[in-house]
Design a protein around this nucleic acid. Structure first.
Length: 493
RNA sequence: GGUCCCAUCGUCUAGUGGUUAGGACGCUGGCCUCUCACGCCGGAAACCGGGGUUCAAGUCCCCGUGGGACUACCA
């Protein structure tokens, strides 16, 4: 076992937590927990234009919701802070100066337009678009001239022609040639550090031992290793996992539908289901198990089981897991999770008797795929069946159907005891009195009671409703049917 | 275009030279059952192609082909 590894998740607060990033966080978290190491959270907010405080807050909230707790980072601190890059600017400045002193970087005065022109020219001549080093060998006088024009420089790293090789923990040896990469910017003209520069410094200073991240960072790794070499730092170990893909096999993005953790939360997915599903995407667990708690995932986790090819996000399978977790949820906690969805559906839980609500949820929880489905399943207990479904009408319009309902209602009046007992005895009474059984017996009762032809077991429905409410419904449905078919039918004759 | 990565059922995956190529989601047939679900039993469904290496290749090598990522003063 690796001793005390330190890993990090370093999102930029430019939007809601994306499931792809959540999965990266999960991999890092599982790795840390499995190896009894530390999981560090760092906020990469050096893009002032796109970063927002509200996103940082939602990022932390989503991570907590998923149950991915961090050992160091925003809101809890640690020995390697600060954990927000915007608060580490002086550190980057010091490191920039160190590279300047060694002549490993140079100021670049090119404007965005000049750079764009160079790019277009290279593309036009069918060459690889990259920075050709225009400012690399400027004389002090030339630099001074540009400065006095009011240009503020960015700083570029002098890329040498050496070969960069590293051993990816998931992909094995990977090689890049220095001559394929242009001098890249490490500090922007506004003074902010560029990504590749800041990560290297932070990962080194924060003592990160394993960098586990998406495959989209594979080529950045080459640049980062060049920087590690320039600083004389030992690079960490790298592991690049595959990306999450949409149905069209392109990197999962907004146009594929729901992609943020927040969206799934709002759509009624349980954190346990999402995290379990994410752990299954592009990886697998020890003995082939697919339904695992966080703790079991941690125990069964291994980087070696991470697959190399992209994984298509399959919402169907997520839904299956979600239904599974809802079904096995303890009803009490399910009530808490359900609260916002009940409110949304027009059944504010605070205005419902909690004991009765618990009973209701108990009987419908097997039918939910997402929490947001609650509305369509709970209606039968709240709304009298004024709106008989066409199927229910058909059932009640069969010969003897109304008679079944009426005899059932009469039987109800005579029975005493618990709702279950009353129900069972009454059903038996109808069965014997009218000599009906099976569908002919139950369906009319169900249709009249709920207005539907499908739903939870009748015994449960009856128990939830109680005798009085049940009787009112039976009468009402009978009237509806008589009204619609019987009376009108006669008038038309 | 350049660089890099990847390639087992529709999808997620198991498989580390010898397997009837396994599991899961989805689809589907049946059972259970008042219905819908749940559950149980069964079915269809895959090694991208071509060369090697080997007694033996899904597994190793090469070449194709296909897909993806990156190619920003975003991270």
């Amino acid at each position: 076992m690796i001793s005390k590894p330190r890993v990090r998740f370093a999102p930029s607060p430019t939007g809601e937590l994306h499931v792809g990033n959540a999965r990266t966080a999960l991999f890092n978290w599982m790795f840390a927990r499995h190896h009894l190491g530390e999981f560090v959270l760092r906020i990469e907010d050096t893009d002032e234009a796109r970063s927002a405080r509200s996103y940082q807050d939602s990022l932390l909230a989503d991570l907590q919701w998923l149950g991915l707790d961090w050992d160091e980072g925003p809101s809890i601190g640690g020995d390697y802070g600060p954990y927000k890059q915007s608060e580490r600017l002086d550190i980057y400045a010091t490191h920039l100066n160190a590279l300047i002193a060694e002549d490993l970087v140079y100021p670049c005065y090119c404007t965005a337009q000049e750079l764009e022109d160079e790019r277009q020219a290279l593309i036009l001549s069918k060459r690889m678009p990259r920075y050709m080093g225009k400012c690399r060998n400027l004389t002090p006088d030339e630099r001074q001239a540009r400065l006095s024009e009011g240009r503020s420089p960015s700083y570029r790293f002098k890329v040498s022609k050496e070969t960069v090789v590293f051993d990816d923990l998931i992909r094995g040896p990977i090689k890049f040639e220095g001559e394929d990469v242009g001098d890249f910017i490490i500090v922007r003209s506004n003074g902010m550090p560029a990504y590749n520069f800041a990560v290297v410094i932070d990962d080194h200073l924060m003592n990160i031992t394993h960098v586990i991240r998406g495959e989209d960072h594979l080529s950045n790794t080459a640049l980062q290793i060049m920087l590690y070499r320039a600083f004389g730092f030992d690079p960490p170990l790298f592991a690049h996992h595959c990306l999450i893909l949409g149905k069209d096999h392109a990197k999962l993005s907004k146009r594929h539908g729901s992609v943020s953790v927040g969206e799934f939360r709002r759509r009624g997915f349980l954190p346990e289901a999402l995290i379990n599903y994410l752990g299954l995407l592009g990886s697998s667990f020890a003995d082939g198990r697919e339904v695992l708690s966080r703790q079991e995932m941690v125990e069964a986790f291994s980087l070696e089981r991470a697959s190399k090819s992209g994984a298509v996000f399959d919402e169907e399978k997520l839904r299956w897991l979600n239904a599974l977790y809802i079904r096995s949820s303890e009803t009490g906690s399910l009530m808490t999770e359900l609260a916002p969805f009940l409110r949304e559906a027009g059944y504010p839980p605070e205005s419902i008797d909690p004991d009765w609500l618990r009973l209701v949820i108990e009987t419908v929880k097997n039918d939910l795929t997402t929490l947001a489905d609650i509305g369509e399943h709970i209606g039968i207990f709240f709304d009298p069946p004024d709106d008989l479904s066409p199927e229910a009408e058909t059932v009640l319009n069969q010969p003897k159907a109304l008679q079944v309902v009426e005899v059932f209602d009469q039987g109800l009046a005579q029975e005493e005891g618990s709702p279950e007992e009353v129900y069972i005895r009454t059903i038996r009474y109808v069965k014997e009195t009218l000599s009906v059984k099976g569908k002919a017996l139950f369906m009319p009762v169900r249709a009249a009671l709920t207005g539907r032809t499908s739903g939870p077991e009748l015994e449960l429905v009856f128990a939830v409703l109680g005798r009085d409410a049940a009787r009112r419904r039976l009468k009402r449905s009978c009237e509806k049917i008589k009204d619609k078919f019987y009376k009108h039918g006669q008038e038309q004759q």
